[in-house]
Nucleic acid binder design. Sequence first.
DNA 1: TATTGATTGCGAACGGTGTTCGCAATCAAG
DNA 2: CTTGATTGCGAACACCGTTCGCAATCAATA
Lengths: 230, 230
Amino acid sequence: MTARDPIDIWRRPERSGVGPKPQHSRGQIAAAAIDIADRDGLAAVSVRRVARDMGTGPASLYRYLRSHDELVELMVDTVSGEYDLGPSGETPRDQLLALARQGRSIMHRHPWLAALLPTRPSMGPSTLRYLERALSAMESIDMPGPSKLQTVAMLTALTSAFVQNELSQPGNSGSDNGAANDRLEYLSEAVWSGNYPRLAGALAGGHEPETPDDMFTGIIVDYLAGAGLR
Amino acid sequence: MTARDPIDIWRRPERSGVGPKPQHSRGQIAAAAIDIADRDGLAAVSVRRVARDMGTGPASLYRYLRSHDELVELMVDTVSGEYDLGPSGETPRDQLLALARQGRSIMHRHPWLAALLPTRPSMGPSTLRYLERALSAMESIDMPGPSKLQTVAMLTALTSAFVQNELSQPGNSGSDNGAANDRLEYLSEAVWSGNYPRLAGALAGGHEPETPDDMFTGIIVDYLAGAGLR
DNA sequence: TATTGATTGCGAACGGTGTTCGCAATCAAG
DNA sequence: CTTGATTGCGAACACCGTTCGCAATCAATA
């Protein structure tokens, strides 16, 4: 009886010794998928495309994945492994801030990540390690456990919100080509109509150089202070 | 010569008098799509499904839409029309807070919205009206126009982040059925392994009743204060 | 009133997608 | 050498977004 057991999500089932040696791995699959997403956007990450890039057929990947959704989860968790969880900072606040900063740079490295993170709490090993680290930073804080978890969740949500805001700024085309143009067509027409005077005024003042680093730090620090982290 | 002009994104091209009267409308399409998304999740909103629910074929909708992406934009802007933009609140801060509160309840009414809003600044008429209203709330504030726009964008991003956090809480199944279960499987196993002691501790303390309203207000007010809004 | 032609409705088809099925190939254990 | 759990993967199914082409409509014109 061929078992066809459900694939253990994160560990491969410890090879029972029998059967041919695997020619692929979740790691390779994740790497290929992340590569595609970094280059051509998340929408380009299809099971078939990943398989093609790996030189095999789509069906093969289903020995390692339960679904396309799980592929995305795998991508998120894999990329979450890019955190450096070594100690950095004295106070809990500084440690969490450092983590958030790293998060921002990871999201810049993988622009598809920001939109994904708040939606799917991936719960892979790297994510769990990150969670454990963040909780350890808050060890001295007197606060019920669930609230600490919520604080961490809100922290990454804030970070991803900020980064998505950065990425949607004009100039960061990313992989959006013509879609934005249509929007701008209508926007300029609407502004020209005179129905939105304040909006017109706000848009008139050209895009000045911002200092997003300080803004980011400010927002995060304000939130942490509000949450009782000092 | 059949013109087949590009469809004006938000206004129908003012009917030139010639040709059969339209049997559908962008409004109907939006309503059908929103209904599907509210009931079965955003993933269920396909052009074909919307057409089927409207009792017609997929090709028909393409007289009113340029693409599936535009359908989603239309949904977002339509739902953004649910804001009540009447004056509420004295200070700029109170007005923006009131807007954010409305945003939260709209996102609760349409759970698919929160994940969409920060990604695609839809720029439809309702969105523009909302923007204009928010800017008018800040009229007395001395701040360059673009920064005001960024403040508003960050405000909705914060709101959507908070709501996504609320929605991913256990108990709000929404339309996720089995996917979360697999995650929990691995999570409980990982926690049981003893490798994540702090995480285990945090999860052990059962889910206490939260007071998300105050939390939300606190976060928004803190942000606005940090941005110079008093 | 008859004609015209821009506009709408939509069946049919194309290429891409996620996913399942079934079987041949593998290879440690017995 | 046999066994049988395991892997690789071609083929197929249902669905998706999108385009094409043409019949049907109907205000404006002749």
